[in-house]
Design a protein around this nucleic acid. Structure first.
Length: 782
DNA sequence: CTAGCGTCA
DNA sequence: GAATTGACGCTAG
C-alpha cells in the first residue's frame, strides 16, 4: 500500500513530479553556510544578498508590457489552450515519466540534499515608467524549499512519526488517526476515505430535497440532456459541498474540509427572483458527486477523456462561484490524471469574493453572508454595475483579477516534493545544536532561563547583567508598545561585545530556522510528501498576493546548509527555475507618478541598478565594489525615506545618529523634489476624498486620514502614499499576461510556481532554459 | 516607512 | 485548556 504514491509518482501521472526527473547538467553548488554546527559563530547570519551576474546578450527591443483588454464580459477560453494541453504538455509529461522510472533512486543510498540548485534566468523587464533595453542575467540560485527526489522514500513510518507540536497538525480532523493514507486532494483535501458515512448522510439529505437532481441517479440519456441544459443555461452558479456538511458559502473554517460534491444551479431566469428564493421556474439544481472515476463521465464515451466539469467551467456564458479558486483547484486535484493544469488555467469563473474585496480591500468580508449583507442590501440591484465610482474597479476586476483566479488555482495545485527524512534529520541536528547553545547561554547568564522567552532574556540582560549601563554611548532600541528594553537581534548585537560569550544571541536565529523553516515545512506535509502553498488573492489591502502553509514568499533567500555531513551527495537532478525579475517596480512606479527628473534620469541608464548606484554614492566606492549587503542597505534606506520614516527609525537603519539621519533625509528629499511633491499631493487628495486610488484603479479608503490624533493621522498618510505606489500594477499585469502566454503560446514546457511580489518563478525543463529566456525577450510578449 | 505570515510566551 | 495579543523575524517594495 505504501507503494501506491510511489508508483503514481513513477508513472508520471502527476505532472509536477516532472520536476524531480529532469536531468541536471549543472553540478550542485556546495554553498557553505558558516560551519555553524562545528564552532558557534559570533553571529549566525544568513545574508540577504542576491547574486546578480550580468550575462551575455542584451536585447535592443524592450518588450512592452500591457494588459490584454478583455471586454467586461465572459469569453470562451482560447481554442489553442486545449491544443497546447493535449499536444504539448502531455507529451512531455510522458517523456519525463519515462525518465522518472529509469532513474528512480535507490532507497537510502541516494538522498537528495535538503536544498536544490538551479539556474535562474533573470529577465529584468521594463516597466511602463521608462524605456530601456532588456537585460538577461543569469545567476545560480539555491531554491528556498527543499525539493527532493523522493517519493520512493515514502514509508509508513515516515508518515506516522510526525510530531504533534504544531497547531495545524493538531487541528486536522483526519490527522494521525489511521496511519498512512494517500491523499489525492493535496493542500486542503486529505482524508477522502474518511467520513464516508457522514458524506453519505449529507448526500442523502441533499438528493432527497425535491428541488435537487442527483446526477448519479440519472441514466446516460438523462445525463446528456442535463448537460445540454447546462450548456444553454444563462448562468451557472457552482458551490462546493464538503464532507462535514458545510459548503463554500458557510463561514471560514480553520482547516478546509474535504470536498464531496458540487451543487450546480442552472439559471435561466436572471431577473425577477429575490436572493431568498433563487430557484425560478426554468431553473434547476443538480448535485454532482465528485469521484475519481465519475460514473457520469465514464458513460459518455464520445466525450473522450475530457472532463465534463471542465466543459462546464470553460463555457462562454456566465459561471459564478464564491471562492472560485477553490473550485478550480479542487477540479485539478480530483482529475489531475486526466486534466492538464493548462486547461483549467484558462477558465474564467466569476467570483463575488474577489469583486467584493475590490470594493473595500481594507475590510474584506469573512464569509458569503457577510459579503451579501454588505453589498446587497437591496435585493434587486447588482452591486458591480451602475454606480460610476465602481467603473474603474470593474475593469480592474475583469481584466486582471478574474484572470488571476485560475492561474493561482493552477499554482496551488503544483506539488513540490520534499525529502521528509532528510528534513527530519536536519530538524534533529538543529535541535541538538540548540540545546548546546542553550546550555552555553545559561552558563553565560549564570542562571537557567528560557532562551526563547523575551521577558526572561530581558531580565537576564538588563536586570541581572545590567548591560545597558555599559553602553551609554549607544542608544538601545525599545519595544513599540510598552517601551521596554528590546531583546531584538539588533539590540542584543550591540550588547554582545560586552559579554565574553556570544551565544545569547545565537539562539533566536537557530531557533527561527528550526521552528519556521524546518519544522514548519514538515508540519505542512502531514500525510503527504510534498508541499503546495495556498495563495490568497484577497488578503492584502494593497492588492499584492500572499501565501500560507508554507509562506513561500517569506522563505529565506539563501539556502541553508547545516554541515558538510548533512549535505549528502544526491543524484544530479535539479529543477531549473526561471525567475522573471522586475527591477524595483515600486521605485519605477514612483518615478513615473512623480515625474521626478532626477529619479527618471537614474532609470535611463540601461544597465545600472538603482540601488547599486545609490550605494556606491553613499559609501563612496565604485559600483563594482558595492556588495550585496550594501545594496540591500541602500534599498531599505531609500524605501524608508520615501515612505516617510522618522529620524529615529532612520538612524537605526542607517546606523548613524538621529541628527545625521535627518540631514540625510533632507538631502534625499531635496534631490528628488518631485517625489516630495507627489507625496504631498497624494496626502492632500486623500484628506479631501477620504480614499486614494492606485494606478490600476484600485481603491483604499482611509478612515483615519482626518483623525484628531496626530500619530494615527500620520500613519494614515503614510499608508495612503504606500498604497498608491505599492500595488501589483506591473507584476500583476505581467503575471496574468505571461500565464496565459505560458498556457497557450509558449513552445517551452514551463509552469508558473510562485509569485514573490516582483518575481515570477517558473519551472522550465533544463534543455529549454535558453529558449525560454529567449522567448521572454521577444517583443511578442506584450 | 508600508505590506504580509509564522512562532512563541 | 483554549483563544487572543504583542514582540519578534522572515519576506517583498
Amino acid at each position: 500500500m505504501a507503494l501506491a504514491p510511489t508508483s503514481t509518482y513513477a508513472a508520471g501521472q502527476d505532472s509536477s513530479s516532472s520536476s524531480t526527473a529532469i536531468k541536471a547538467s549543472k553540478k550542485m553548488e556546495n554553498l557553505n553556510l558558516p560551519n555553524s554546527l562545528n564552532h558557534p559563530p559570533r553571529f549566525l547570519s544568513f545574508p540577504l544578498k542576491r547574486k546578480h551576474e550580468i550575462l551575455e546578450h542584451q536585447n535592443d527591443h524592450p518588450p512592452k508590457i500591457s494588459l490584454t483588454r478583455h471586454p467586461p464580459k465572459w469569453e470562451p477560453p482560447h481554442c489553442s489552450q486545449k491544443q497546447a494541453g493535449e499536444n504539448g504538455f502531455s507529451k512531455v509529461k510522458r517523456a519525463w515519466s519515462e525518465t522518472a522510472i529509469s532513474e528512480l533512486p535507490e532507497p537510502q543510498a541516494k538522498v537528495s540534499p535538503s536544498h536544490q540548485t538551479g539556474i535562474v534566468v533573470e529577465v529584468h523587464k521594463e516597466t511602463c515608467a521608462t524605456k530601456k533595453p532588456l537585460q538577461i542575467c543569469q545567476r545560480k540560485v539555491e531554491e528556498k524549499c527543499c525539493e527532493s527526489t523522493l517519493a520512493s522514500k515514502w514509508t509508513p513510518s515516515s508518515v506516522t512519526c510526525k510530531p504533534l507540536k504544531h497547531k495545524r497538525a493538531k487541528l486536522g480532523p483526519e490527522h494521525g488517526t489511521n496511519g498512512p493514507k494517500i491523499s489525492h486532494e493535496g493542500a486542503n483535501g486529505g482524508g477522502e476515505l474518511q467520513n464516508q458515512s457522514k458524506a453519505g448522510c449529507l448526500t442523502a439529505a441533499l438528493t432527497s430535497d425535491p428541488r435537487v437532481t442527483d446526477c448519479g441517479k440519472l441514466n446516460p440519456e438523462e445525463k446528456m440532456l442535463m448537460l445540454e441544459k447546462a450548456g444553454h443555461a444563462k448562468a451557472l452558479v457552482l458551490t462546493l459541498v464538503y464532507r462535514d456538511g458545510t459548503t463554500q458559502l458557510d463561514s471560514e473554517q480553520k482547516l478546509a474540509p474535504a470536498v464531496c460534491g458540487l451543487l450546480m444551479l442552472m439559471k435561466n431566469d436572471l431577473d425577477g427572483r429575490t436572493p431568498e428564493d433563487p430557484l425560478g421556474q426554468n431553473d434547476s439544481l443538480v448535485y454532482l458527486k465528485l469521484e475519481h472515476t465519475p460514473a457520469w463521465a465514464q458513460q459518455c464515451t464520445h466525450q473522450s477523456r475530457e472532463d465534463m466539469l471542465l466543459q462546464v467551467l470553460s463555457r462562454s456564458q456566465l459561471v459564478v462561484c464564491y471562492k472560485a479558486k477553490d473550485l478550480l483547484r479542487t477540479t485539478l486535484q480530483f482529475y489531475r490524471q486526466d486534466l492538464s493544469w493548462k486547461q483549467v488555467a484558462g477558465c474564467h469563473v466569476q467570483d463575488p469574493q474577489v469583486s467584493g474585496w475590490l470594493l473595500d480591500p481594507a475590510n474584506p468580508s469573512s464569509c458569503y453572508q457577510d459579503l451579501f449583507n454588505k453589498h446587497c442590501k437591496r435585493p434587486h440591484t447588482t452591486p458591480a454595475q451602475g454606480t460610476k465610482k465602481c467603473q474603474g474597479l470593474w475593469e480592474l476586476y475583469s481584466d486582471m483579477e478574474l484572470n488571476m483566479i485560475s492561474v493561482l488555482a493552477a499554482m496551488e495545485s503544483h506539488r513540490i516534493h520534499v525529502d521528509k527524512e532528510a528534513l527530519k534529520r536536519t530538524s534533529d541536528l538543529l535541535g541538538t545544536k540548540m540545546k548546546q547553545l542553550e546550555q552555553e547561554a545559561h552558563r553565560a547568564a549564570g542562571q537557567i532561563f528560557l532562551v526563547t522567552s523575551n521577558p526572561q532574556l530581558r531580565t537576564v540582560l538588563f536586570e541581572k547583567l545590567c548591560l545597558q549601563e555599559r553602553c551609554e554611548n549607544k542608544k538601545l532600541p525599545k519595544t513599540i508598545n510598552k517601551q521596554q528594553q528590546s531583546t531584538s537581534e539588533a539590540a542584543v548585537s550591540i550588547l554582545i561585545p560586552l559579554v565574553y560569550t556570544t551565544t545569547l544571541c545565537c539562539n533566536p536565529q537557530v531557533h527561527k530556522i528550526k521552528s519556521t523553516f524546518v519544522d514548519g515545512i514538515l508540519s505542512c506535509m502531514t500525510n503527504k510528501n510534498y508541499i503546495s502553498s495556498t495563495w490568497y488573492q484577497t488578503s492584502v489591502v494593497t492588492g499584492r498576493i500572499s501565501a500560507k502553509h508554507p509562506n513561500f514568499q517569506a522563505l529565506p533567500r539563501q539556502p541553508l546548509q547545516i554541515t558538510k555531513k548533512q549535505y549528502i551527495q544526491g543524484k544530479n537532478e535539479t529543477v531549473i527555475n526561471v525567475e522573471l525579475y522586475f527591477c524595483q517596480v515600486e521605485l519605477r512606479l514612483l518615478a513615473h507618478l512623480s515625474s521626478d527628473p532626477e529619479l527618471l534620469r537614474i532609470f535611463t541608464h540601461p544597465q545600472a541598478d538603482v540601488f547599486t548606484m545609490l550605494a556606491s554614492q553613499w559609501k563612496g566606492v565604485t559600483e563594482a565594489e558595492v556588495t550585496s549587503e550594501d545594496r540591500e542597505h541602500a534599498k531599505r534606506i531609500v524605501y524608508s525615506v520615501v515612505y516617510g520614516a522618522g529620524r529615529e527609525r532612520l538612524s537605526g537603519i542607517l546606523g548613524v545618529s538621529a541628527e545625521q539621519a535627518s540631514r540625510f533625509q533632507d538631502s534625499f528629499l531635496q534631490t528628488y523634489r518631485e517625489v516630495q511633491a507627489f507625496i504631498q499631493r497624494t496626502i492632500q487628495q486623500c484628506h479631501k476624498q477620504g480614499y486614494v486610488l492606485s494606478i490600476m484603479g484600485r481603491r483604499r479608503t482611509l478612515p483615519n486620514i482626518n483623525a484628531p490624533d496626530w500619530g494615527i493621522r500620520m500613519q494614515a498618510e503614510r499608508q495612503a502614499v504606500n498604497f498608491v505606489v505599492q500595488g501589483r500594477m506591473t507584476v500583476g499585469a505581467v503575471f496574468c499576461r505571461n500565464s496565459v502566454w505560458c498556457i497557450s503560446e509558449c513552445v517551452c514546457n514551463c509552469r508558473l510556481i510562485a509569485q514573490l511580489h516582483d518575481e515570477l518563478l517558473y519551472e522550465v525543463e533544463d534543455s529549454q532554459v535558453e529558449q525560454f529566456a529567449g522567448e521572454f525577450t521577444t517583443p511578442n510578449i506584450s
